[in-house]
């Protein structure tokens, strides 16, 4: 019985990525005396928070069998929109943030509507919309940052709650909601059903297109949230916000056990994957290695993770 429980634990799809995270965490702590300092921990947590919010949305899209390459630029564009509303039009900062979120929802929703109503491939469509959204960003800002974001909202990006950075708290709350939705609600079950077999999901009477549009909208909103938190963290609305949020969330999802073909994985796994990437990026900085190596390292992790997954899957199949 005891053995059975243990093997059940190991069979949990999250076990592998969790153990990997633990090993990397311990190794980092052993290798660098600075790693565990509270300052460094809050740096890691904060950087994980921004990418993490995008990762949660992207992982839900991947489970659905879709992909949105415009999430990064949605984050940047919405930050810029909110910044301009505050600074150029004198809108109340809180209202501006709300409108920024609405913009993110609208942009994500647009992607979803195009994908479902025209039957476009989401990868191809969002390459296009990423160009459009990013272009609008540059047209609006002419590439220049909007500075002097009001102090009253800066705590969203810079503040702490009991020593934990606010963006990280926000990310954890969003993750909890996402985990509940995917695992415990009918909507979540529909997500997996559609991602696994769209035709069968239709035959079961699931409103496939509505679910798809909703998840695109949610992912856009989360990307905007990440962008807005970043604006309040920096105190300026940089047009370049979100440039680095395109591939890492996909890589994190894959490391965390989300299948790019849909139907498999959880947002929690994806965040564990994002944490692995965040720690490795951090340790590279701590060691003073050229940041140019970051791409190589996170690429190697992705390749390792999917190879490991493929091999273990073959093993499991043989067992069955």
């Amino acid at each position: 019985m005891q053995r059975k429980n243990l093997s059940f634990l190991l069979a949990n799809p999250l076990a592998g990525v969790f153990v990997a995270l633990l090993i990397i965490f311990v190794l980092s702590a052993l290798l660098s005396p600075y790693f565990l300092t509270s300052y460094n921990m809050s740096v890691v947590a904060r950087s994980l928070a921004f990418v993490g919010l995008v990762t949660i949305g992207q992982s839900m899209l991947l489970i659905l069998g879709e992909l949105d390459l415009s999430l990064g630029v949605i984050g940047g564009l919405c930050g810029v929109i909110a910044g301009m509303l505050m600074m150029n039009f004198g809108v109340n900062p809180w209202v501006a943030i709300f409108l920024g979120l609405v913009a993110g929802a609208a942009l994500g929703c647009f992607n979803g509507i195009m994908v479902t109503q025209l039957g476009l491939h989401s990868l191809v469509l969002t390459i296009g919309t990423a160009g459009i959204y990013g272009g609008i960003n540059l047209v609006l800002t002419k590439g220049v940052a909007i500075t002097n974001i009001p102090k009253e909202i800066q705590f969203l990006g810079r503040g702490d709650v009991l020593g934990v950075p606010v963006p990280f708290v926000v990310m954890i709350v969003v993750l909890a909601i996402a985990a509940f939705v995917t695992l415990k609600t009918p909507f979540g079950r529909y997500l997996y059903a559609i991602g696994d077999n769209t035709a069968a999901a239709t035959m079961l009477g699931i409103k496939v297109n509505r679910v798809r549009i909703l998840v695109f909208t949610a992912a856009g909103t989360l990307a905007a949230l990440a962008g807005l938190l970043m604006v309040s963290r920096l105190g300026t609305a940089q047009p370049s916000i979100g440039d680095t949020w395109v591939l890492p969330p996909i890589a994190a999802s894959v490391i965390g056990g989300v299948a790019t073909t849909g139907g498999v994985g959880t947002p929690v796994g994806a965040i564990l994957g994002a944490a692995i990437i965040a720690i490795i990026e951090n340790i590279i900085v701590l060691f003073g290695v050229s940041p140019y190596w970051q791409g190589v390292v996170s690429g190697v992790i992705v390749v390792l993770a999917i190879s490991f997954d493929a091999i273990s899957r073959r093993y499991i199949r043989r067992e069955d």
Binding site: P186, R189, Y190, Y192, A193, D196, N197, A199, A200, A201, M203, L204, A259, G263, V264
Partner: peptide
């Protein structure tokens, strides 16, 4: 295979989807 089962999900989830 094409229109019926959700191949990567468990028997529980496959049946559970209709009794939510």
């Amino acid at each position: 295979k094409l229109h019926g089962i959700l191949p990567q999900l468990s028997v529980r989830e496959n049946i559970g989807i209709s009794i939510l």
